[in-house]
Amino acid sequence: MKGPILTATDIRVSFRKENQRRLFGRERQQVLRGISLALEEGECLGIIGESGSGKSTLGRVLCGLLKPEAGTVRINGLDIYGRHNHRENAQLHHSLSVVFQDYTSSANPRFRVRHIIGESLRVLERIVGSKLDRERRTAEVLEQVGLPSSFAARYPHELSGGQLQRVCIARALAIRPRIILLDEAISSLDASTQVQIMDLLLELRRSLGLSYLFITHDLTSITYLCDRVAFMNNGEIVERVDDIRHIAEIRHPYARLLLESVMGIGVEYGSGDNAQAQWAAAAAC
């Protein structure tokens, strides 16, 4: 086994407060307080926390949109906020792709599906350095996410939420990434569509050997999809579970609170062996 494909060490982020006590004040709100995590090739790491715990900020840091004040993010050993030559840069952008929560704003309303995916293909063309058959490639990725190729001519408002989220996944797949960051990617969908999308993600992971970083506030989907879980609270990782089957063994009070609020009363230590199966069944119905 090689080393982890993505590592983050001691990430710290703070924002300047909007309501300063003094004129020209320099007070800052600490959002992430030293987050470290590692993602192995082919695994799915869940990051769970309530709103305001900093998980979406962490997502932005990991996909290269927000430079942290301290700490490094490395993909294949390359620091994504460091200086690189053209080739390393291409490789970095090539490795990680992202799917956002709010599908209504994640696609340009003036683009057809063909152009939405075409943007990723354009980036891929620049990395590979040769022309691709865009038409065929678009049909391919649409097929991978279970949509007919005739959808390529549609506009985002002509698709349902689940279909649009599939298009977003297709767009993320089109640059042939090795990691996909799913930032609440299924939270805004209804229950049955959630299961469909999660099944799709599981299948894609098997067939393409992808790694997922799955950010969510929903424990059910974590147990359905992930191998490992990190609980986030107030900008810190408070508990890690390295085997999802032992999720009921967690000790940190915050993580237990979160777990109990989802699973209801009667979660005892060690009773989590069949939790995955239970929740799979619960989610399916």
């Binding site: 840069n89 970095l92 952008h93 990680l96 956002f100 709010d102 994640s106 939405i116 354009r122 640059i175």
Partner: peptide, 22 residues
């Protein structure tokens, strides 16, 4: 701050492309 612009930036579309096309 719309997601489609964030996505473009994260996969490394150039600024010029984002400004002119989005």
């Amino acid at each position: 701050n719309m997601n489609f612009v964030l996505f473009s930036r994260s996969i490394g579309s150039g600024n010029f492309y984002i400004l002119t096309r989005h």
